[in-house]
Amino acid sequence: MKRRNAAKFAAIAAASVLALTACDNPAGESGSETEGEESSDVRVGLAYDVGGRGDRSFNDSAYRGLERAAEELGVETRDFEPSDGEAESAKADRLATMAEEGFDVVIAVGFAYAESVESVAADYPDVHFAIVDSEIEGIDNVTSLVFAEEQASFLAGAAAALSTEEDHVGFIGGVETPLIQKFEAGFVQGVEHVDSDINIEIDYLSQPPDFSGFSDPAQGREAAQAQYDRGADVIYHAAGASGNGVLQAAEENDFLFVGVDSDQYENAEESQKPYVLTSAIKQVDVAVFEMIESVVEGDPQSGIQRFDLADGGVDYTKSNEELISPIEEELDGLKQQIIDGEIEVSSTP
C-alpha cells in the first residue's frame, strides 16, 4: 500500500471582547483598518466556528475572505474565536456584542450559530447578519451562504476511487450532523459511480451536542490510522481542524489524503504535500467577500445565496499535478455531467 509522491487566499486579524479564546494577544482581541484601493467606514465582525482560525480548512477560508475585504474594500475588520464546549448563550452574546459595538456586518461561520443568528438579528434590524452553512428564511437582515458540498464530495469520491490501489477508501466526519452527512453522501456516490465494489470506511469523531470532533487532531489521526489498518489507502475528511491529524497519519503511513473546504495541498507542510490527492473546496472566502462587498456598495445581499459546481462555488483542486493529471480528464467529465444534470447527487446518505 506504499505510495510515492502523492486558491487563492490569505488572512487578517482578530478577536473578542468577551471571555473568548485569545488569538493574537492575551486579551483575545485584534483588528485591522486596512486601506485598500478605497477606504470604507463599514465595520465587519466575523465569528469563527469550532476549531477557530488555523484549521487550514473551513474557518481559514472565511478568514481569507475577511482579509480580502479589508485589503480591497478598506473596511475595518475584527474576528472572534469560540471557546471549546461553549454554551449557546456564548454564541448569542458574541453576536450581540458585535452589533452593540457598531459593526455594520456580522458574519457567523458555521451552522452552530443558526439559533443565535435568528434570535440576535431580530433585535438589530440595521445590522447586516450573514451565516455560513445554514438556511435562515424570513428575516430581512440575514443572508444565508450555503454550498452544494455533496457535489464537490462526489468528485472527491471519484478521485479516491480512481486512485486507490487496494479498492478500499475511507471517510472521516467531524460530527455526525446533516451538513457533514452531505459530504459523506457525495463521497460515497462518487466512489460507487466509479466502482461499486470498492470498500468504503465511514467514521465520525463525535455526535451532537458534542462538537469536539471538529477540533481534535489527535482523534482525527487515530481514526485515520484505524481506517488505514483496516485497509483504506485513500481517506477523505470533513472534520475541520481534526483533519490535520488525518493528514499527519497519511504522511506517517504513506496513504493518500483528500482535503476539504480549502486547498489543503497549498496549506500543507512540504513533507505532507505528496500525500494530498485533492481537496473538495467550497469558496467560503468568496462568499464572505461578496457579502461584505454588497454592503459597501449599498445593495446588501439577503435571503439564501447558494453556491454549486455550476457557478464555481464548489469544486475539486488540481494543485498536486502529479496525482491529479492522470485522472483529471475523467473528473472534469463527471463535473460537467453534474453541471448538466446528467448526474444528480443526493445530499443525504
Rank of each mutant, 00 (worst) to 15 (best):
K2V: 11
R4D: 09
N5K: 07
A7W: 03
K8Y: 10
F9L: 07
F9A: 08
A13H: 09
V17G: 15
C23G: 14
N25Q: 12
N25I: 06
S32C: 10
E33H: 14
G36E: 05
E38S: 14
S39H: 09
R43D: 06
G45A: 15
S57W: 06
F58T: 01
D60R: 08
A62F: 04
L66D: 02
A69Q: 09
D79P: 00
F80P: 00
E86V: 01
A90Q: 12
K91I: 02
K91D: 02
R94F: 02
L95S: 11
A99M: 04
E100N: 15
V106Q: 10
I107R: 11
A108Y: 07
A112L: 14
A114V: 05
S116F: 04
Y124K: 11
Y124F: 15
F129G: 10
D133R: 00
S144C: 10
A148I: 05
A152Y: 09
S153I: 05
A158H: 02
E166G: 13
G170L: 10
E176S: 12
E184S: 01
F187N: 07
Q189K: 14
E192C: 03
I198N: 15
E201R: 10
Y204G: 01
D210V: 13
D210K: 02
S215A: 15
Q219A: 15
E222K: 15
A224K: 04
Q227W: 01
Q227H: 04
G231L: 10
A232Y: 02
D233I: 05
D233K: 03
V234P: 05
H237K: 01
A238L: 00
A239F: 00
N244C: 00
E251D: 12
E251A: 14
N253D: 10
F257Y: 14
D261Q: 08
S262M: 05
D263Y: 07
Q264A: 02
E266W: 01
E269P: 04
E270C: 00
Q272C: 01
T278H: 01
S279V: 09
I281Y: 09
I281K: 08
V286F: 07
V288Y: 01
P300R: 10
Q305L: 14
G312K: 08
G313S: 04
T317R: 04
K318T: 15
L323T: 14
L323P: 00
L331H: 13
G333P: 06
L334M: 13
S346D: 15
P349G: 02
